[in-house]
Each structure stands twice: as C-alpha cells, then as structure tokens.
C-alpha cells in the first residue's frame, strides 16, 4: 500500500430548495477533484473559506453524499459501501476539527474521550483505558486523564482531539484547520506535535488550512482550492517559491509579515471582491473575476490542467496561451512587487 487515500474525479453538491414548492436544485460546491495522499505524507489543502476544503474532508469520509467520483481509503473502495458496511473501515481515517471547544463532548473526561474509539476493538475495558492513557501521554497530557474538557486550555483540548484521532491507529488523519483557533505559540506546539507523531507512527495527514505559514511548516505537498476546484498542485517548497496560479500568489502575499520597518513591507496583491457564489461559478477560468492578470481568453475558456517543468501543476491561461506575462512574468511581478517602495505602506491594489 503506497497511497492511503485516493480520490478521483469527485464532485459534491448541496441540496438547495428554492421557494416553498420549488424543485430541489443541487448546488455544486466541489467540482471534479482528484488527488491522493501517500503513506506518511502530509498533503495540505489550502484556500479561502467557501472554497470547498471542508466539504472535501467530509465527503472523503462519506459524511456527505457525493455526486460522482471514486474514493479509495487504505486500498478499499468505499465509494458505494453502505453506512453499516463502512463502519469498520472508518477507523482508517480520523478527523481533527478546528474548534477544540465543540469537538469534545463536555460530559466526558479526557480518558473517556480517547477510549471511546477503541470500543470496536477486541480489547477489555482495562486494556482500552491503559491504551488511552498511553495515547494521552504521547500527546503530552500525562496525569490529567480524569479531567473534563472545560478544565483544559484550547491547545490541550486539541491534544486530546489528536489523541482520540490516533486511538484506532488510522492510516490517515484529516486535520480541518486544526490550529487556526489557537494562539500562535500554541499553534507551533501543535504543529510540532503533529510532525513528530507522523515521524514516529508513519501516519498521513490531509491538512486543511487557510494559513499558508502553517502549511509551509508541515506539508510535503500543497493543493490550492478556488471556488470548488483545485487550481494548483505541487511540492510545498516549489509552490511557495514559484507559484503557477495568480491566486496562490495572492494568498502568499496576503499573509501579514512581522517587520519592524514599514518600508520593508512587501508590496502585496490585494484581491478585490469575494469568492463567486457557490454553484454559480463564472464562465472560463473561475478566478478571472478577481484576477489582476485576466485576459480575454480567461473569460471564455476553461484553462487546461498543465504540468510545468518544476514539478508544479495548475490551471492558468497565463502560461499556455502565449501571453507576454507567462510563467516567468508572474514570478517577475512578485519580485518587482517586493522591491518596489513607491508607497510607504507598500501595498497595491491592481
């Protein structure tokens, strides 16, 4: 087994009823998405809220129905399994949620929370409790097993959630914004914990985040989502250095940098407007309504998925339709922006 999770051409819709007697009109929020997560690999899914990241997380776990596509989890095709038949396979993929406050049942103690997923296993209660205790210790929470969630800080709660996810020895953990509700210092602790658990247990992560500085620290590979589509994919370092898609560039430049000297602020691309309404993407390239480089072709033709020399793939006309502002032009723009200091705030809207 080399791939822990394989998703091919998956689409997901939400039902939407228009009016009192209107027909149910499905709203497509994830369109034709394919990706895989290898054993021990960390794959990050980044994008704005509403881009479909969390929907993908729930759909691959079959917590949401999918329109079409195929999901293979730990070499088992789970696409069409009934919920009952699926239950034993669920242990292979576990979820860690964003909000460590609502994801733990407030009426259970830490050890009960971690012990619960072990119930399906052929273990005595004693064995389960001992195992849960070890798991809590492995996430740095020894000696506090009998406490209730409210007695823990946000970071400690997230540790409990991680211990719970690890309990059934899954091949894959899907982390849905696992650190975005935490303080920066705590974020770093949790990221470091996740990283060391991956090294010791060989578990894979599908890591969902809108925060690129976090993604950079942990992910091997990045998938960039925009309006329900994957627009760019590649090894983390390369995507960060040479992004193919202007949207990735905008995401990268939007992260506020901590600099003491205002003049050193990088010039940034401030995207105008919002994501398109789900279910009604604009024609052509879905990003053209906000893209600073949009050309005529972008408004009419859907850009093809293209693989580039440096191992990054993406869909953008800039690199394929003979534009003067090709791939090198994009990175050149970024460099120019960094160097330019014509306004003291160092920002620009284009």
């Amino acid at each position: 087994m080399t791939q822990v999770l394989e998703v091919s051409e998956m689409s997901v819709s939400f039902p939407r009823r228009s009016g009192l007697l209107g027909k149910s009109q499905p709203l497509r929020v994830v369109e034709n998405v394919s990706f895989e997560v290898g054993k021990g690999e960390v794959v990050a899914l980044v994008g704005e809220s509403g881009s479909g990241k969390s929907t993908i997380a729930r759909a691959v776990l079959r917590l949401l129905p999918i329109d079409n596509g195929r999901i293979t989890l730990a070499d088992v095709d789970i696409t069409t399994l009934s919920q009952r038949a699926l239950r034993p396979h669920r242990r292979n993929a576990q979820l860690v949620f964003q909000d460590p406050y609502s994801s733990l049942d407030p009426s259970m103690t830490a050890i009960e929370i971690v012990e619960e997923p072990l119930r399906g296993f052929a273990m005595s209660r004693e064995e389960r409790l001992r195992s849960a205790q070890e798991l809590l210790a492995s996430v740095g929470l020894a000696g506090v097993e009998g406490r209730y969630p409210y007695e823990f800080s946000g970071g400690q709660r997230q540790r409990i959630a991680i211990a719970r996810a690890l309990a059934p020895r899954p091949a894959l953990i899907i982390c849905d914004e696992p650190v975005s509700a935490l303080d920066l210092s705590t974020q770093n602790q949790i990221i470091s914990l996740l990283d060391s658990l991956r090294q010791s247990l060989g578990v894979s992560y599908l890591f969902i985040s809108h925060d690129l500085s976090v993604v950079r620290r942990i992910a091997d590979r990045v998938l960039v989502m925009y309006a329900g589509e994957i627009v760019e994919e590649g090894p983390t370092e390369r995507v960060f250095r040479d992004p193919v898609h202007p949207y990735t560039l905008a995401l990268l430049s939007a992260v506020p940098a901590v600099v003491g000297d205002r003049s050193k602020h990088a010039k940034r691309i401030v995207l105008e407007g919002d994501l398109p309404v789900p279910g009604a993407p604009p024609p052509g390239c879905r990003f053209h309504t906000r893209c600073p480089f949009a050309m005529d072709v972008c408004r009419s033709e859907v850009p093809a998925w293209t693989e580039f020399d440096h191992g990054v793939s993406g869909r953008c006309h800039l690199h394929t339709s003979g534009s003067t502002l090709g791939f090198s032009g994009l990175t050149q723009f970024a460099e120019d922006a960094m160097a330019s200091t014509d306004r003291d705030r160092g920002q620009t809207s284009i």
Partner: peptide, 11 residues
Amino acid sequence: LDVTVQAQMLE
C-alpha cells in the same frame, strides 16, 4: 476572515 479578505480590511 481569510487572509485575502483580512488584507482588504486592514487597508
């Protein structure tokens, strides 16, 4: 907010 929207708001 998302980072892209945050950038708009700060400005």
